[in-house]
Design a binder for these strands. Sequence first.
DNA 1: AAAACCCGCAACCGCCATCGC
DNA 2: AGCGATGGCGGTTGCGGGTTT
Length: 195
Amino acid sequence: MDGKGNSNMSNKSVNSGEEADVRKGPWTMEEDLILVNYIGNHGEGVWNSLARSAGLKRTGKSCRLRWLNYLRPDLRRGNITAQEQLLIMELQARWGNRWSKIARQMPGRTDNEIKNYWRTRIQKRVKQSDSPQFQNAILIDEANSSTSQTHIADAGIVQPSLLDEPTIMNTDGIEPQFFIDFNDNFWTFEELWSM
DNA sequence: AAAACCCGCAACCGCCATCGC
DNA sequence: AGCGATGGCGGTTGCGGGTTT
């Protein structure tokens, strides 16, 4: 399943008045099966009544989230690709933290997945960086925020969040070439786009 | 070997918008 | 118009595994 050993974890329950014994915490395999089977037979929607009808002691919200983020058959598994990484950066720069909107541009990926990816892999590096070229990159990126989807690559703009060290790789001082640290190699945007 | 620390991610929380009555 | 139910979204938390010391 999710590799987190959710089948025997200490699932919490809460008693909140009339909504007795609502389960919280990690989903079990049995719950997943119930939810998948129920949606397979009846379809999605009206999550609170779905949860009740299916016999799940979960909130509708919890069922919806589990379905959308983990059980949907059209979910794309595996690591974020280089192209997806660039797309996330591009769209985040353009739209900000509109994760659901960004996710709609990336079939098979969820807003939660993209949000987590951004926070753990990219934002972390943004915070590490306060170099001048980093600041310039942000400014340039915002200035270009309404242009085409490939403007970052076209403009040769660094997304410094992807650099292990926020340094310019060449030193000609005219047209800085920026590189992305990916799979232990440095790549240009053009190279990554063509992968 | 084991304790401490770090990291990734599933799931929850709180807020807001929308809808139907 | 008001209100409750529901859905959607972004932010946050906490667990478990991996890594470092």
